[in-house]
Design a protein around this nucleic acid. Sequence first.
DNA 1: CGTTGATCCTGGGCGC
DNA 2: TGCGCCCAGGATCAAC
Length: 289
Amino acid sequence: METVRRSLESRLVGARISNCCVTEKKILRSTRGVDILEGQTVLSLDRRGKYLIVETDRHHVIVHLGMTGQLTIRDPNRPDSQSFDRHPVTGLETAVQHPPDRHTHFHVCLSDGRSLLFRDTRKFGRVFVLEKDGHSLLDFFAARKLGLEPFSPSYQLPAFLALLRKRTLRIKSLLLNQSFVAGVGNIYADEALFEAGIHPARRTTTLRRSEKILLFEKVLVVLERGIRNKGTTFRDFIDGDGREGDNRDELFVYGRAGEPCLRCGTAIRKIVVSQRGTHFCPTCQPRKR
DNA sequence: CGTTGATCCTGGGCGC
DNA sequence: TGCGCCCAGGATCAAC
């Protein structure tokens, strides 16, 4: 989501909303629809965890991409690509914007002719519209109880250790819980655990202090790498310009089941933890301590 | 309260 | 080519 935010920021800030249209009501959470956004100007783009926060004159529009959500700008002065096919490995990235299709659920038309499109095949994504006056934004995030924010002053070791205390669940499950560290998803959880040499199914109570500290650091490392590579694309992820991310090429375990570990050569294994596919190296991440 | 599992969706890939 | 099954970057809610 940070990749999406960065790609959209310069293009959206200052833009004026002329018209809005929701074609799938399920994804929208707004007490007064979306027409209330018309005529407003985008003031800023922020992010908390996996939530994008678009600030307009009188509202906050919050977007969560779920699993397959895409938020892109469409510029009529650029040609649409002809399909959703992956560009070849050696292909040059030029204009890659996509025209709306049956999975495009939310259109925001801008006064300069461009539009912001929200597309989401699985419809797990959400768009929230909050009134700016009052405590709507605070209430929104208070209700979701997001945990430490990486790269912000809140991300500190004592707080990290405190959140680990008195928990009995598996470390992978905790990493996926957004009330622990906000923004860590399935890919980055597996990658952070690999880098820290921790088996994903271990109970948090069995972690040594040194392992916790390593994990604290590696969460930042893998997120930073993901952002530097502009996101991890397996099938659906694209940034605001429609470009895929390169981080898949730098993954150590996620999506590599059966392939050799890049550190020791052992075959990467895949198990299920918290009903999520979980990848690890049995040698680099031993179960027993 | 903490933890676990079902559920919401659509589409791609695989075995038969 | 088609069918059935399993899998997928996530969060929420019910049940224990």
